[in-house]
């Protein structure tokens, strides 16, 4: 790089406000009340609920509710802090290393990506051995809930 250069910096800074619509709105209200809302759409079951069937684009048919128990389908163990968009006022992400799991709730045809905790160890390889694909997990509710996905603090194994 020639020395006739100059380093500069600027920021991308925007404020957003987005609508949830009824379907997601019901789901987030359910979280506030420690419930997992789902729905049936074109006779397939979804937790979280689906706003429309992506094949027919028709609205969902019926609402469902459950306690959120499910199974782990995949995971990774995050060893670096995720510096992402600040969605909630306080940073509710667990300390590193933490497990980010893919969880299928009940008979949902969709999965949800969330934290899995409750392993006594902080050693990455030990955590990897403790997690089985297909193991049962259930949600652990935050004490202070605001109707957002992090009202579930994390999922923990069902022993």
């Amino acid at each position: 790089m020639s020395n006739n250069v100059i380093k500069k910096e600027w920021r991308f800074n925007f404020d957003f406000s987005v609508a949830s619509g009824e379907t997601y709105g019901r789901f987030f209200k359910g979280l506030n009340d420690k419930k997992i809302i789902g729905n049936i759409c074109n006779n397939r079951t979804f937790y979280p609920p689906k706003p429309f069937c992506d094949k027919t684009l028709k609205p969902p048919d019926a609402w469902l509710e459950c306690d959120g128990a499910g199974i782990v389908e995949a995971f990774t163990i995050c060893c670096e802090k995720s510096n992402g968009v600040k969605f909630s006022k306080t940073d509710k992400k667990p300390d590193v290393p933490y497990v980010l799991g893919v969880i299928k709730i009940k008979d949902s045809e969709h999965c949800i990506i969330h934290f899995i905790s409750g392993f006594e160890t902080k050693d990455v390889s030990e955590i990897a051995d403790k997690i089985e694909i297909g193991m049962k997990v259930k949600p652990v509710w935050a004490t202070k809930r605001e109707g957002e996905i992090l009202d579930i603090e994390y999922f923990e194994p069902v022993i």
Binding site: V18, A19, G21, P51, F52
Partner: peptide, 29 residues
């Protein structure tokens, strides 16, 4: 934009569905 209550993907889904309904003849994705 301030009074919008539909979720972002719902708006596009409605839009495409309106397009299919305009054409009719069982046109689908």
């Amino acid at each position: 934009a301030k009074r919008e209550t539909r979720e972002r993907t719902e708006v596009s889904a409605d839009c495409i569905k309106a397009g299919f309904d305009f054409v009719g003849k069982g046109l689908s994705m």
